[in-house]
Design a protein around this nucleic acid. Structure first.
Lengths: 338, 338
DNA sequence: CTGTTAGCGCCTTCAT
DNA sequence: ATGAAGGCGCTAACAG
């Protein structure tokens, strides 16, 4: 019900009239242009606050061809990892004066990711960060809209797109070596879902340490990151003989394993040691507190924005790859083998 | 290094030339206008894909005064609750054809929230969802930029802004009544931080059930949502006499309590029963699996978008309040009092 | 230091 | 069914 009394929002010209200057001068004040006399600036500022004027960034973007908005495409941001990255990215972007538009996908197949990126490109984002932990997502990065700066997080380092990732292999090596150092003959692994970069990296790291030490490499138990998958794996593990050490590909699955073992009366760490991955806030308070691999998602977020802004500002995208090292957090779920 | 060979992105006029029509016709095709002959449409579509044309939503927004972008202001989206709401909101918005720009605040004081909203308003969002679980955030809603549609989630229902929230009081009543029904004389409470709507609602619900049943009301132990706070509270609880039932204001604190009790050799639920709040994915696999109150964040997200779009489309903002009922999930951390 | 002029790429209105 | 003209609110380039 648009009534004729409805007042439209003030625009620059209104401020100009109110302050008795040209709209250009208002623009200069707003953009901190040096060449404005202090008293003119004061008059304009007074007019702005008197009118409650707010500038229209859409119009500005149209002419500058810069929206100062970045796009982020991510998988299910309900999970701790993606949520933490998102947070780090948003903080870093805002600090740099950028907005963040997000798209959270339920599935990272190439078509979905491509659509999301196209969608963001139409909206005029200045660049995109794609959290692409699955191979399928990586494929979407091979055909970016022309001229769109992009950064991949946890990408497959095969796309030519600059990327930042956590050293999954090293993380898994830390975990596995820790267990071997405690005297365990070998280490069982509950893996993440196939097709995920993290899953593959963690399997690789785990396997490499065992092989280097000349230890038997058990078949990994396939999980899907969920506590339930860990629980099912834990039940299998409890039924097997000779298991003394388990490396779960994330903390939630480690929790499931822990639960299953507890149910079966297997004591942790006395009978079986467990290491997780992620260091979610809860893991310190599991029973027993979980030894795990800490990933600094914040740093990843900050780095990805850095790489992206460098492309945007320089207008070029030399391939660059930033690897963030993980660290082992030893708590009480691991112990010397008896 | 802008070279002269750099090709600019194709615009509508380029497509028009390529297809041998006016740019207006291209616009009609893009907007599914009915009055376009099928073969003209086909020619235009061919030209679009040949040129790899992508429309410029910024220019469109300038003239339509609609950006088809919604803003969301939230507190630390690393937490399960906010992250889940965000996810629900983004899904619902995208389904409705809207983008989502986010701002995650480290602190919800009124000035921060106001800045965030102003920031989004300048960017031209069509409306904002403010996840405002603290009183301080609510205050920022009292002075919205004129004409900006808004919805509060978990607001303080004192602002006149339409809102959707979960019935915290009822959730706490469910938890407390469950414990009394199991024969417990009274229930201790580990609360959330002061100034949070959720904290207050949960305290109120817990207290009201105890009072209605004529039971003693112990002083709540003040927490801050973190597992560590629960852990500290748990240590206190373990040292007290006569404690048989505890209601923690969220699952993470319940985990901390559980951990402290386990350390002190207090058995759950045999000696002390515990109920949490949130039903995070992990809680089913705590030891013991946690009885808790489930909140459907997805539904909250969807409802908030519904309310917002209704305002945007209708151009009016009648105060409306949607309350989502929580439900009790009984698992193994609660038992009959001995 | 300040004002004027000319678009940015698109949609709306009116004409054909 | 299609085209032409005009303008959304702003900034860039040039005058003065």
């Amino acid at each position: 019900m648009a009534s004729s009394t409805e007042r439209r929002l003030p625009v620059m010209a209104d401020v100009a009239r109110e302050a008795g200057v040209s709209h250009q001068t208002v623009s200069r004040v707003l953009n901190d242009h040096p060449n404005v006399r202090p008293d003119t600036r004061a008059r304009v500022e007074a007019a702005i606050s008197r009118l409650g004027y707010r500038r229209n960034l859409v119009a500005r973007a149209l002419v500058t061809k810069r929206s100062r908005t970045l796009g982020v495409v991510s998988f299910d941001t309900t999970l701790y990892g993606p949520a933490s990255m998102m947070y780090g990215i948003e903080q870093a972007a805002r600090t740099a004066g950028y907005f963040v538009s997000i798209v959270s996908l339920k599935s990272l197949d190439a078509a979905n990711v491509r659509d999301a990126i196209d969608y963001l490109a139409e909206q005029g984002v200045d660049g995109v960060v794609v959290i692409a932990p699955q191979r399928s997502a990586g494929r979407a990065l091979e055909s970016l809209p022309q001229g769109l700066p992009a950064v991949a997080v946890e990408g497959s380092h095969t796309t030519g797109v600059p990327e930042v990732c956590i050293d999954q292999v090293e993380g898994a090596r830390l975990a596995t070596r820790h267990l071997l150092d405690l005297g365990h003959e070998t280490v069982w692994h509950v893996s993440g879902p196939a097709d995920w970069m993290e899953s593959e990296g963690r399997i690789e790291g785990w396997r490499s340490v065992l092989e280097e030490a000349g230890r038997p490499v058990p078949e990994p138990l396939a999980g899907d990151w969920s506590p339930r998958a860990g629980y099912e794996a834990g039940k299998s593990l409890a039924a097997m003989r000779g298991v003394t050490a388990v490396f779960a590909a994330n903390d939630q699955m480690a929790l499931g394993v822990l639960r299953a073992l507890t149910e079966k009366g297997v004591r942790v760490p006395e009978q079986i040691s467990i290491v997780g991955f992620d260091d979610i806030p809860e893991s310190e308070f599991f029973s027993p507190p979980l030894t795990t691999v800490r990933q600094d998602f914040d740093v990843v977020g900050r780095h990805s924005i850095e790489l992206l802004l460098r492309q945007i500002d320089a207008g070029l995208s030399a391939y660059e790859r930033l690897v963030v090292p993980p660290s082992l957090v030893v708590r009480s779920s691991t112990a010397r083998v008896r």
